[in-house]
Amino acid sequence: MEEHLINNVLLGLLMMTGFAIARMRSLLAVTMLTSIYSLLSASLFVVLDAVDVALTEAAIGAGISTILLLATVARTTDEEKAPRHTPLLPLFVVVATGAALIYGTLDMPHYGDPMAPIHLHVAPTYLHVTPEEIGVPNVVTSVLASFRGYDTLGEVTVIFTAGAGVLALLGYRTRRRNSQNPEIRKMVVLRVITKLFFPLILLFALYVQFHGDYGPGGGFQAGVIFATGFILYALAYGIGNVQRIIPYGKLRIMMAAGLLIYIGVGIESMLLGGKFLEYRILADDPVTGQQLGIMLIELGVGITVAAVILIIYYGFVSRKH
C-alpha cells in the first residue's frame, strides 16, 4: 500500500513539474525544473523496481543533460518570448494524440497484473536461464549485454555518433591551465568539497563499472559518473586543468577505442567459429565465456561513454558566452 502511495505522490509531483515547465518563461528556471523532473522519474523508477534505469536516468537526465542545458542557456538567452499566435493547431494535435492513447489503454492489461502477456512470453526465460547460462545475478545486465547485446552495441554507436556530431558542430579549444572564473576561485567550500569528492566519484565509477553484474550499474552508468567527476573538477578548478590531464586527442582515441573493443569482441567470437557476439565461445567454459564477454563489452561501453561525454562538454564550453 505504501508503494502505491509513493507512486501516486511522485506522479502528482511529475504532473506539477511538467505543467510548470510548459508554462514558465525563464529558461534557467525551466532547466532546473527539467532536472527535477528527471530526478522524480528516477525515484519513480526505483519504486517500479527498475533500479538500473533509475541510476541511469539520475546520472544522464538529471546530471549530464542539465549541465548541457545550463551551458546552452548561458551561451544563448534566458528569456523566452511569447509565441506570436495562439497555438490552436498544436493544442488540437496534442489533444487528439492524447485521446488516441487513452483510447488505446482501454484494452490494456491492468497495471501490475502478473498475468499480462508481457510477463508470460519472452521475459520469464531471461529470469530462468540467466543464473545457469550466464551466471550473473543481475538479469538486466545479462539481457542488456548478452541476449540483446547487439542493441547495446547500437546504443554505443548512437552515443559515438553524437560525439562525432558535436565535435563537427562545436569543435574544441584548449584552454590555459588557470582559466577558471575568478568568482569561483573565491568559493573555498566548493573547491574543498570538490577536491574531497573527486577521487570518491572516480572510485564509485569503477565500482559501478565492475559491480554491474551483481547490483545496479554497468558501463553506461560508470562512464557517465566518471565523466561527471571530471566535469565537477572543471567547474571548480577550470577546464584548462582537466584538459591537461585528459587532452582532447586522447579522448578522441578513447571514444573510438571503446567502440572498437565492443565490436572486437564480436569479431573475435566470429573468428573462433561462433556467431557475432557469441560470448560463450570466448572461453572453454561457456559460463566463463559469457562473463568474460560481458566484462569486456561493458568496459568498451564505459570508455566510449566517458570519452564522448567529456568531448561534448569540451565542445560546449569552448564556445563564447
Binding site: 527498475a50 537526465g61 546552452t72 521475459a123 538486466v140 542493441d151 560546449f316
Partner: peptide, 30 residues
C-alpha cells in the same frame, strides 16, 4: 521479479535521448 526487458530497452532509449539532446543543443548554440 518485475520484467527486466523494458528496463533494458529504456536504458538504450535514455542514451539515445542524451545523444539527441546533446546534438540538438549544439545546433542551438551554432
Amino acid at each position: 521479479y518485475s520484467n527486466p526487458l523494458p528496463h533494458v530497452l529504456i536504458l538504450t532509449a535514455i542514451v539515445v535521448s542524451l545523444a539527441t539532446t546533446a546534438l540538438a543543443l549544439a545546433l542551438v548554440i551554432r
